[in-house]
């Protein structure tokens, strides 16, 4: 019985991974379309992907460091950009999650003609959204890291740990994305619920404040939030020049893979019913 479940999970895992390979051209086309689609018709086009994080950096620095005089408070000599850079190192990974999760419920509905009129691998849609936001975020993160290196001089070899923080994030986002994309077909209210939930999650995750600022009695709640571990790990790798919290990250990675598999399984199970409902 146990081995049966294990083998089915293994099969599901390999099936879902082989998906990205066998539809790589389609995924690439659709991601490209999604990324360029955001700037279609604008004069500056893809340049906006570079301008956005720059403006955010400037505005956050002005508002938080200059006006509100906020300090991250980890050490004495904080530079002007430090708060904004630390903030963005948390915000950008969070946005990968938030974007793919909040777009998921309407995803299948928006592609109704892919459901009913063509033979289309619907399961790649959440992946397309995820990769599209990953590309955006990679550009933003590269700019933030460049700033961190120029103005804070903090970027070191620990940057090689970044993929270890990002991979669980992708698995988690995709798993939840699959789950919500399928659920959104059956229950259309999901979209609204999810946008409220992601807003709440934003404040419950140490993005605007350091994890160390959380009172001791609330710690377990925050440690249960997988995004906390991921964001801590990203900051460790990029600007704190140390290795990520291995145990915490390891548990979160295992959890993410479980969510990924469950989401995939749920999506594939409910997929045959889509055409009857839409």
């Amino acid at each position: 019985m146990k081995s049966n479940v294990a083998s089915r999970l293994t099969i599901a895992f390999f099936k879902s991974v082989s998906l990205f390979w066998s539809f790589r051209d389609l995924i690439r086309q659709l991601v490209l379309r999604d990324v360029t689609g955001r700037y279609k018709g604008s004069y500056l086009g893809l340049l906006w992907s570079f301008l956005n994080p720059l403006f955010m950096l400037v505005i956050y620095t002005f508002v938080f460091s200059v006006v509100m005089k906020a300090r991250w408070g980890l050490h004495e000599h904080e530079g002007h950009f430090e708060y904004a850079i630390t903030l963005l190192c948390g915000l950008i990974p969070f946005n990968i999650f938030a974007e793919s999760v909040s777009r998921a419920p309407g995803l299948v509905l928006a592609h109704a003609n892919y459901v009913k009129r063509v033979v289309f691998p619907l399961e790649i849609l959440p992946a397309v959204v995820l990769f599209s936001s990953l590309i955006q975020s990679a550009i933003s993160l590269a700019i933030v890291v460049t700033f961190a290196w120029l103005f804070l001089g903090v970027v070191s070899w620990t940057i090689i740990f970044l993929p270890l923080a990002i991979l669980p994030l992708l698995a988690l986002s995709l798993g939840i994305g699959w789950f919500l994309a399928a659920l959104g077909v059956f229950i259309r209210d999901i979209g609204h619920t999810v946008s409220i939930m992601t807003q709440a999650l934003f404040f419950m995750t140490p993005i605007l404040y350091p994890a160390s600022a959380i009172p001791q009695q609330f710690r377990p709640v925050f440690e249960l939030n997988p995004l906390s571990a991921i964001i801590e790990a990203v900051r460790c790798a990029l600007i704190w020049e140390k290795s990520p919290p291995w145990l915490w990250l390891g548990i979160v990675a295992a959890l993410s893979i479980a969510v990924y598999l469950a989401g995939y399984y749920w999506f594939m199970r409910s997929k045959p019913a889509f055409a009857d409902i839409l």
């Binding site: 389609l26 003609n113 892919y114 009129r117 063509v118 033979v119």
Partner: peptide, 20 residues
């Protein structure tokens, strides 16, 4: 034209449709 997107050119649609 199911699976076609009216915002994109014929060529772009052919590329995506071919991939589908």
């Amino acid at each position: 034209g199911a699976g076609f997107n009216s915002e994109y050119t014929g060529r772009e649609n052919v590329l995506v449709n071919g991939a589908i």
